[in-house]
């Protein structure tokens, strides 16, 4: 199991795809060092388009390339990719249904010191709301690598939400990432945590601490936010009787709402709590400091578990 940032797993997959799939092309908006597309550009310069700092142009150029049968991965920081290009994504990608993969790196408040203008906390809300768009957020290096391969094979628009910080390896090559499938990491009882991205790791740490108090939640990695794994959510919510969601995203429009919708639409009325950014902009600081201060750390997940168990 390899430790590393999901953006690094993405970059590694692009290099592999460069060799295995001649239709894969990569676009960037002038951050190819940070977004990890640069190695692909070195290896396959004719298939790499650095569009400069112009995200809308990049997204539409990707859409044009897609109409010629290419599989473009349009890549930049999540805040600029979605923030600058929502209209282009709606019209030239989603409505036109072009086979464009949007890879947003540096998502969430985990970006850290660059501050709230660089901390994208509304991207899952944006992308979930777009028809034809699927939304994927891997939980470690290996899952990011696999998800990139799977999205290259998937025909249609997709948003791949990636992070800056190094994460502990959860999976090896025997893991099989599948679009729309959650993955049960720990089977426990009384409460189920549906977590995504870096919050899977925080949840795992929380569970180590809770174990000492004989509290053993079920933990699920939800790496496809849309289409979400409704069957698994329904089954585990019923079995466990209480639900927590955990994400580095604003509390509105992300994983929490996606899971909440499944529960309500299926008449599952159980205690429900969201671990998420509480509808505010964070500040500068290290990722760990921000997770602690803004309610996303392992401590907060553990606290949420204890609180929800008291509601049962």
């Amino acid at each position: 199991m390899k430790d590393g940032a999901t953006r690094d797993g993405y970059g590694a997959a692009l290099i592999e795809l460069g060799a295995s799939n001649p239709d894969v092309v990569v676009l960037d908006s002038g951050v190819s060092d940070s977004s990890r597309t640069k190695p692909f550009g070195k290896e396959y310069p004719e298939r790499f388009f650095n569009m400069g700092i112009s995200e809308g142009d990049m997204v539409c150029t990707a859409a044009g390339l897609a109409t010629t049968g290419k599989i473009p991965f349009a890549t930049t920081f999540a805040c600029f990719l979605l923030g600058r290009s929502m209209d282009q994504i709606l019209v030239s990608v989603a409505y036109s249904n072009t086979n464009v993969k949007l890879a947003g790196t540096h998502s969430g408040i985990a970006v850290g010191e660059d501050g709230p203008s660089a901390q994208m906390i509304v991207d899952m809300a944006y992308t979930r709301a777009i028809p034809n768009m699927i939304v994927v957020q891997p939980a470690d290096w290996e899952e990011a690598r696999q998800a990139t391969h799977v999205l290259a094979d998937y025909k249609g628009p997709a948003y791949l939400r990636l992070g800056r910080g190094k994460l502990k390896g959860l999976y090896d090559a025997s893991h099989k990432f599948e679009i729309g499938k959650g993955h049960v990491l720990k089977k426990g009882k009384n409460v189920v945590i549906f977590a995504t991205g870096g919050l899977v790791q925080e949840s795992l740490q929380a569970m180590e601490a809770l174990q000492k108090e004989n509290i053993t939640p079920t933990l699920v990695n939800i790496s496809t936010i849309k289409p979400i794994d409704s069957d698994l959510i329904i089954k585990l919510a019923r079995e466990n009787g209480a639900v927590i969601t955990a994400e580095d995203h604003n509390k509105y429009g992300g994983l929490g709402d996606a899971v909440g919708e499944v529960l309500l639409e299926n008449n599952i009325h159980v205690p429900f709590k969201k671990v998420a950014v509480q509808d505010q902009f964070a500040e500068t600081g290290t990722a760990a400091q921000l997770y602690e201060k803004y309610g996303l750390s392992a401590n907060h997940v553990a606290k949420a578990v204890k609180e929800i168990l008291q509601q049962k």
Binding site: V25, E46, R47, F49, G56, D57, V59, C60, T61, A62, A63, G64, L65, A66, T67, T68, G69, K70, P72, D87, Q88, V91, S92
Partner: peptide, 17 residues
């Protein structure tokens, strides 16, 4: 404002192919 970028993407596709 989007069409020129899209057209350019197609033009790049022609070159690749």
């Amino acid at each position: 404002g989007q069409g020129l970028s899209v057209a350019h993407g197609i033009a790049l596709g022609a070159r690749l192919d």
